[in-house]
Design a binder for these strands. Structure first.
Lengths: 148, 148
DNA sequence: AGCACTTGTATAGCAAGCTATGCAATGCTA
DNA sequence: TAGCATTGCATAGCTTGCTATACAAGTGCT
C-alpha cells in the first residue's frame, strides 16, 4: 500500500490550514479577534445586516457553528443580532462600531500573514497556487455559488 | 482596503481543508475512525512504538492535542500507551491488532477522497498543486524536518 | 381554518485544534 | 549530593468544526 503523507492533498491541506491559522491567530489576537470570527466579519464588513442563513451559505460553514460563532461575537461586542421585521424566525446580524473600526487592521493582518506564509513562492507560483485552490473549490461538492 | 476572500490563501486553505476533512470523515466513519486519528495512525503504521513527542514533532501537532487524541485512540481500542523502559516520563504508543487491520481500508479511503476532491484538476495540475503545497510548507516556519 | 410540512435558529455533544498550567522524571551544575 | 533547570505528558479551558435534536415561526394544502 503506497501512501505518502506529503503526497496527499488532504494531509497537506490540513497542515497548511493549521500553519496559516496559527499565524493569523497570533496577528489578530491583539485586536481581540479570533480566526473563526474572521470570515463572518469579512462578509459583514461588505454587507451589514445579513441573516445567519446568508452567512452560512456564503461561507459554507454549518449552521450550528455559525450560531455559536455569532453568540461569541455578540458576547465580545462585535455584533448584535436582531429579529427581522417580516419573519419572526430570522435574525439579522449588525456590526458594532468596534467591529467596524477593526476592519483595516484586521485585513492588514490577514494580508501580512498571507504574504509571509507564501514568501517562499515566486509571484507566478503564488498566483498559480491561488488559482488551483479556487479551481478545486469550484469543482468540489463543497462549492458555494458565487464564491469570489 | 482591497481584500477578496477568494484571493486570500489563508481563507482558501481553511475552506479546502474543511471540504477535504468532511469527505474523509464520511469515508472513514464506517471504519470507526475519525480524522484526527489519521495522521497518528499513518506514522504508527510505518513505525510502531513511537513516543508521543516523536508524533508531535513529525506531525507538527501540539502536545496537548496529541495527548488528547491518543487518549481517545486508546479508549477506542486503537492503541495502547506504555511507559518507556529507560525514561519514566516517556510513553510509547503501540498499535492494536484492530488498528493494524484498518490500515488498508483507511488508506484506500484517503486515496479515494483525494482523487475525488481533485477530480476537477488535470493530472499536471494535481502534481503542481501538491508540489506548491509542499513548497509552502517547507518554506514556512511550520516546517517539520524530514517531512516526506 | 386546521394541520402537515418546511424553515431558521438555538442547544447539546463530540472531535480537533490551540494556549496555559501542573506534576513527576531526568539532567546539569556547584 | 542537593538544588535547580529542563523535559514529557496529562489536564483544564476555550475556540472551531461537525452531526443531531428541539422549538417556534412560516408556508402550503385540503
Amino acid at each position: 500500500m503506497e501512501f505518502r503523507k506529503n503526497q496527499s492533498a488532504g494531509y497537506l491541506l490540513n497542515h497548511l490550514a493549521r500553519i496559516f491559522a496559527r499565524g493569523l491567530s497570533a496577528r489578530i489576537k491583539p485586536l481581540g479577534l479570533t480566526t473563526g470570527t474572521f470570515p463572518a466579519l469579512l462578509e459583514l464588513w461588505e454587507t451589514d445586516g445579513l441573516t445567519q442563513k446568508q452567512l452560512v451559505e456564503r461561507l459554507d460553514i454549518e449552521q450550528a457553528t455559525m450560531a455559536n460563532t455569532l453568540s461569541r461575537m455578540e458576547r465580545d461586542g462585535l455584533i448584535s443580532r436582531r429579529k427581522d421585521e417580516s419573519d419572526g424566525r430570522v435574525q439579522r446580524v449588525w456590526l458594532s462600531e468596534r467591529a467596524r473600526a477593526l476592519r483595516a487592521p484586521a485585513i492588514s493582518a490577514a494580508l501580512a500573514e498571507n504574504e509571509d506564509a507564501l514568501s517562499g513562492l515566486s509571484a507566478v507560483e503564488q498566483q498559480q497556487f491561488v488559482a488551483l485552490m479556487q479551481k478545486v473549490i469550484e469543482t468540489s461538492s463543497g462549492a458555494v455559488d458565487g464564491e469570489r
